[in-house]
Design a binder for these strands. Structure first.
Length: 475
RNA sequence: GGCGCGUUCGUCUAGUGGCCUAAGACGCCACCCUUUCAAGGUGGAGAUCACGGGUUCGAAUCCCGUACGCGUCACCA
C-alpha cells in the first residue's frame, strides 16, 4: 500500500472578525503537520451562514495567515486542483449530496417552522428531556414521495440527518484515544437549510472528502459534533479521516479564551510589537513540548520535532507575560540590522512614524537588551527625536551643579561616551556626590526620563551641541 | 441537567510502574554585576502529582469512584 499524502486544512468563517489567536493556533498545528509529512496545507472559506457573512473579511483572514508566515498550498486566492475553496461557490454540490441521502433514507425532509421547533425545544426542556431533540414529526407524517412532492411544489424545507437508533458511534481521536457516543442522544441534525445552503456538518464532510483531507485537526469544541459527521461518512461510504482535537486556549480563569478577558485578535499582537515568529513559537508551547525540553525554537525546527502524540489534551492558559519574555529573547538574538529594519517598519506601519534610519541604527545596541516588544522602543528612545517636554525630577535645586556640568562638557575636546563618562565621574567625585545621584540628575536633564538607555552613549549619539543646549534649557 | 473531555509548583510543561524525598521554563524574592532601566550570573520560595479507594513488593504513572474545571447540546461555525 502506497503512502497517501497528508492533507490538512483550516476552515475559517468570514463573519467580520479577523483571525482569533485560537484559530491561528489550529492553523499552526495543521500547517506543521502537513509540512512534517511533506503534505499539503489547505485553506477553505466556510461562508455558509448568510446572516453572519461580512464581505471582505475573507481577505483579512487570509492576510492574517500570511502575516504569520503560515502560507497555504491551496486556497481561495492561490487555487488548487480541488477548488473552488469557498463554500458559497459549491452550493449545488451540497444540495446534490443532501438529496442523495434523502433518496437512500439516511436523511429526510422537514417542513417544521422555526416557531414549532423552538416551542418543542422549550417544552422538552421543561420536561427535563435532555438533551432537546427533534421529534421526527415530518418523518412520521410524510412518506418520502409525499415529502419530495411537497418540496417540489415550493414548500420550504430543510434536510435532516436520520440518526440511527441504539447505536454506539465511536471514533479515535489521535490525542485522546477512543471516544464513543450513544446515537440516541444525537439530534437529527439539519444538513441543508431552507435557503439551500448547507450547514457546517454537511459542508465539512462533503468538502473534506472531495478535497481529500485525511487529517481533520481542529479545536476540542468539535468533539461532540464528530459523531454526526461520522454518520455522514458512513452513509456516503467514504473513508473517515483521522481526527485530532486540539486543546482550547484558556483565559486565566480557565474559561475558553475570549475577547472579554484577553486580547484575541491576531493583529493585536502585531500592533503591540510582538514578532510573528515569537507568537508562533509561544503557541507551539501550548499543549506541546520540545522533546529536548527546548523552549525557543524556529518553525522549521518545530516541523522537525513535532508529533501529534506529544500534544497534551489539557486546555492551557494563555500567558501574555511569558509571551513577552519569549519575544524579548527573539529580539535579543536578532542581528542589529534586522532589528533596526523591523523597528522602522513597525513604527511606519502601526504608529505612522517615519524614523531616521541611521539614528535608529545607532541606538540599537543601547536598547536591544532592554526592549521586549518593538513598541517598547519609543519608551526608551523618544528623547533622541524630541527634547523633553517634562522632567521626571525637579531640577531647580541642582542649578549650580548643572552649570558646572555644562562648563566641563563645553570644554570637552573629544565628544565620545568614554570621555563624557570620565569627565562627569571626576566632577561627581569633586562635588562629593554619589555616582548614582549625580548621573540621575544629568540623565533627567538630558532626556527628561529616569529610565533611559546608557547615558554616555546616548549623549554621544545626541551630539555635543544638542546636549549642551538641553542643559542650558534646564538652568 | 444529559453527554463528552480533562485534573503535576501562580502559569506553561517534563514524567508512560522502581533513577521522583517530582525536573525545566515564565513569573516572584534575594544576592552579584551595575551610572538609571534592562540583560547576564548565582541562589531561594513555590506541587502531600485534585480527592478517596483498589491492583502491585513498589504508582504522579494502571483500574474504579467522587469532586472540581472545561466543552457541547441552533436552519452558527
Amino acid at each position: 500500500m502506497s503512502k497517501v499524502q497528508v492533507r490538512t486544512r483550516i476552515a475559517p468563517s468570514p463573519t467580520g472578525q479577523e483571525m482569533h489567536i485560537g484559530n491561528l493556533y489550529t492553523a499552526l498545528i495543521n500547517f506543521v503537520w502537513a509540512k512534517k509529512n511533506k503534505g499539503r496545507f489547505i485553506v477553505r472559506i466556510e461562508d455558509t451562514d448568510r446572516t453572519r457573512y461580512v464581505p471582505g473579511s475573507e481577505q483579512r483572514l487570509l492576510q492574517n495567515l500570511k502575516d504569520f508566515g503560515l502560507f497555504y498550498d491551496e486556497g481561495p486566492d492561490v487555487g488548487g486542483e480541488f477548488g473552488p475553496y469557498v463554500q458559497s461557490q459549491r452550493l449545488s454540490l451540497y444540495k446534490k449530496y443532501a438529496f442523495e441521502l434523502v433518496e437512500q433514507d439516511f436523511a429526510y425532509l422537514c417542513f417544521c417552522s422555526q416557531q414549532r421547533l423552538s416551542e418543542l425545544r422549550q417544552k422538552q426542556q421543561e420536561q427535563k428531556i435532555m438533551p432537546p431533540k427533534y421529534d421526527r414529526f415530518c418523518l412520521k407524517t410524510y412518506s418520502k414521495q409525499q415529502a419530495l412532492e411537497l418540496y417540489k411544489s415550493g414548500k420550504p424545507a430543510v434536510v435532516r440527518l436520520k440518526v440511527p437508533e441504539d447505536q454506539v458511534i465511536d471514533f479515535v481521536d489521535e490525542i485522546r484515544g477512543k471516544i464513543s457516543f450513544d446515537s440516541n442522544l444525537i439530534d437529527d441534525q439539519v444538513l441543508l437549510k431552507s435557503d439551500g445552503y448547507p450547514t457546517y456538518h454537511l459542508a465539512v464532510v462533503v468538502d473534506d472528502y472531495l478535497m481529500k483531507i485525511n487529517y481533520v485537526i481542529r479545536a476540542e469544541e468539535w468533539i461532540s459534533s464528530t459523531p454526526k459527521q461520522i454518520l455522514l461518512y458512513r452513509a456516503f461510504n467514504w473513508p473517515v479521516p483521522k481526527f485530532v482535537h486540539l486543546p482550547v486556549l484558556r483565559n486565566p480563569d480557565r474559561s475558553k479564551l475570549s475577547k472579554r478577558k484577553n486580547p484575541v485578535w491576531v493583529s493585536w499582537y502585531l500592533q503591540e510589537g510582538f514578532l510573528p515568529e515569537a507568537v508562533l513559537n509561544y503557541l507551539s508551547l501550548m499543549g506541546f513540548s520540545h522533546p529536548e525540553g527546548k523552549e525557543i525554537f524556529s518553525l522549521k525546527e518545530l516541523i522537525k520535532v513535532f508529533d501529534i502524540k506529544r500534544i497534551n489534551p489539557v486546555g492551557p492558559v494563555f500567558d501574555l507575560v511569558k509571551l513577552e519574555w519569549l519575544n524579548g529573547e527573539y529580539i535579543r538574538s536578532m542581528p542589529d540590522s534586522v532589528l533596526k529594519d523591523k523597528i522602522i517598519l513597525y513604527y511606519k506601519n502601526f504608529k505612522d512614524k517615519q524614523l531616521d534610519q541611521s539614528l535608529v541604527a545607532k541606538t540599537i545596541p543601547l536598547i536591544k537588551e532592554r526592549i521586549k516588544k518593538l513598541s517598547d522602543y519609543w519608551f526608551y528612545c523618544s528623547f533622541f527625536w524630541q527634547r523633553p517636554d517634562n522632567y521626571q525630577l525637579d531640577l531647580k535645586s541642582y542649578k549650580d551643579l548643572i552649570l558646572k556640568m555644562l562648563s566641563r562638557l563645553t570644554d570637552l575636546s573629544e565628544w565620545t561616551a568614554d570621555n563624557i563618562g570620565n569627565e562627569m565621574t571626576n566632577l561627581a567625585k569633586q562635588e562629593g556626590l554619589s555616582i548614582g545621584k549625580f548621573f540621575m540628575i544629568l540623565r533627567v536633564a538630558i532626556t527628561g526620563q529616569k529610565i533611559t538607555p546608557p547615558l554616555n552613549e546616548s549623549m554621544e549619539i545626541l551630539g555635543k551641541d544638542e546636549c549642551l543646549e538641553r542643559l542650558r534649557l534646564v538652568v
